[in-house]
Computed example of a mutant assay.
Amino acid sequence: MAETVDALAAPDAALARAVAVLAEGLPVAIPTETVYGLAADATRAEAIARIYEVKGRPRFNPLISHVSSMAMAERHGVFDPLSRALAEAFWPGPLTLVLPRADTSTVHDLATAGLSTLGLRMPDGIARAIIDGVGRPLAAPSANTSGGVSPTEAGHVAADLGRRIPLIVDAGPCAVGLESTIVKVEGDAIRLLRPGGLEAAAIEAVAGRPLQRPAQAGAAIEAPGMLASHYAPDATLRLDAEDVRPGEALIRFGGRRLPGEAQARLVLDLSPAGSLREAAAHLFAYLKRADASGAGRIAVGPIPQDGLGEAIRDRLKRAAAPRP
């Protein structure tokens, strides 16, 4: 099983251990404010290949490269004025920018799936310190089997990948609980490739223009999280449920009770108070708990579409999509 180091009790020791394992070209599960990531040196082909091997990830799905500073970001991506303004406003934080690759970039083609662009993000907390210690970008998709539910606690990683990786850095539950929002500036337009932990309205306020919404299903993969089927538990999902059927587990929102929930195998409320931020933080953990209940199907009550509800509904829609 993977070694687990406690970054809350001993941050310096956890940092040193993570940097040492990453320097060997091995993957390490690290906590970010969004979800736990499976990190490896983004400039080394063999290190990136280990991520794909551990996750069972399709090779055409690109990886985000995580940086610790603007100076590091500028060595790998070409920033237009709007992308720079967004980075200055929201980094470190749950925003990924898809940018043209700089001539000076050493991020390996395996991390970008052969694209001429790359996704860059600056995470917060110990993840940023680990990247700084390595001195190079870290590719870090969510630390779970590809297509499965993203981990928001170290225990989720251990249960899924614990026998396949050497180290898990534990910093407790992730504060945001949803992957980063991904955007791409194209001339005067800005496209939302994946809704996530940063609300679209906050980006629009800085950009001074509306975001163009995600491409339709079947479009070319430009960023992580664009596969039609993704974030899926073993159980099937029934979305916008107005009742609960025998044997289902229920995930609801806002304290709204649904007819038939007394016969549910498990009832979970993403936020009894109706907070979308709280719901986002609980989403993946609750999907895992509902899946572990033994129910063959999970009923999910209605979720608002505004604010972070857009990202929550996006994850649920992909989790409910037909499996490839």
Rank of each mutant, 00 (worst) to 15 (best):
A200H: 00
R194P: 02
D234F: 12
H230Y: 13
I221E: 06
L227H: 10
A202K: 08
A217R: 08
I221Q: 02
A207L: 09
A201W: 02
A241S: 13
A201C: 08
R209M: 12
A219W: 01
D234R: 10
A235M: 04
A223W: 00
L198K: 08
L198F: 01
L239P: 05
A223R: 00
G197D: 03
A220H: 06
A215P: 05
D240F: 12
A205P: 01
P233E: 15
A207M: 02
V206H: 10
E204D: 13
I221D: 06
I203D: 04
A217I: 07
G225V: 01
P233K: 09
A202R: 06
P233A: 15
D240N: 13
R213T: 10
H230M: 01
L227G: 02
A202N: 00
A217W: 10
I203P: 00
S229H: 15
M226T: 12
A202S: 11
E204C: 05
R191I: 00
R194V: 06
A232Q: 15
R213V: 09
S229N: 13
P224W: 11
A202I: 02
A241E: 00
L211K: 05
T236A: 15
L239T: 06
A219L: 02
A219I: 04
P224Q: 10
A223M: 07
